[in-house]
Design a protein around this nucleic acid. Structure first.
Lengths: 184, 184
DNA sequence: GTCTATAAGACGATAGAC
DNA sequence: GTCTATCGTCTTATAGAC
């Protein structure tokens, strides 16, 4: 393929992401990443300038995914069907395509705040839930829209969700739709 | 007061909690904690056997708060009024009395998992949302009960809530009550 | 693009004096 | 209950050969 930098670079990202999500960023050493790839630490520094750089590249992947979803959503007509499809795509994004990134980000907040990536991500999410919110923007409606998105990510949360507690497929989406449905 | 161990011990807990919640556990050194208290690292080791021990003592505070709430809730009659009061007390617990503990825990998951405190906490929360859930335990009802609790903590979350986005007092409680109200 | 070797420093934790 | 001094280990990151 065209714009691909190198295979090793992608393998570093993948292994780093796994370890970051499981053991946390600070507790994952470059030695550990290198070992699992059967290369040396110095090799990593050829592909990434610093350890922090690896994180930025990982977050970028998720941001790109959110941007695509936002771009698509903005050119659709506002309808119940569109909202449903936005929620469905968001769920696929944060659970399947970029599940590990989401887990890593949500569970390593102090690190990501220090790296300055938390605010931009929050802005993307805010754009998203404004798209699925009805016209009236009273605080309760806004909170429900936030909760609709949270419902789709709750499996990641070890305190209020957690593994083994994920609802059957479709249930989270159903509850999310209720939350953004116009009041009656 | 009677069972109090020492003033320094409590000051260590307080300062450590502030730093853990802000910069994360791994990035907070004992040197930093000691400096802010104007003592030496060695002094900390008189009051706590290890750095990890400080964390356990902090989590214990939150667990005690949850246990009190659970004990109170269990001796109340099941009614709409009781549910409302449980949610109100939970909100006070996780936002006011133990807000920093909650932030620290939710944002340093890999560390707390390694320390083995995440599962017990999840169990307490599970007890709690079973108390506020109507009889029928279908997956959607269960998910809504979880979301009711999440609504009351959302201010902590930097991605879906975040500072400055906390709803006016009462709104979160209202939405939480909707979520646990019997369907009609 | 990957290696060996190493620099430079921070960290958690301990020993022992006071 | 707090101190000084130190130990051993691990870390990120770099220099330079191949």
């Amino acid at each position: 393929m065209a714009g691909r930098r190198s295979d090793t670079r992608e393998r570093i990202q993948q292994v780093a992401l796994e370890l970051f999500a499981e053991h946390g960023y600070e507790k994952t050493s470059l030695r550990e990443i290198a070992e699992r790839l059967a290369v040396t630490k110095a090799a990593l520094y050829y592909h990434f300038k610093t350890k922090e750089d690896i994180v930025h590249s990982l977050v970028e992947n998720l941001v790109d995914g959110l941007d695509e979803l936002l771009a698509w959503a903005k050119e659709q007509p506002r309808s119940q069907g569109t909202t449903e499809e936005v929620l469905r795509r968001f769920s696929a994004l944060v659970n399947d395509e970029h599940g590990p990134e989401m887990q890593f980000i949500q569970q390593n907040v102090p690190t990501l705040k220090k790296f300055g990536v938390m605010h931009p991500l929050g802005a993307k999410v805010r754009e998203l839930f404004q798209l699925i919110t009805a016209e009236d923007q009273d605080p309760a409606t806004e909170l429900r829209a936030r909760l609709a998105l949270v419902a789709l990510v709750l499996g990641i949360n070890p305190m209020f969700g957690g593994p083994g507690t994920a609802p059957p497929p479709g249930v989270a989406l159903q509850v999310a739709l209720e939350l953004v449905a116009p009041r009656g």
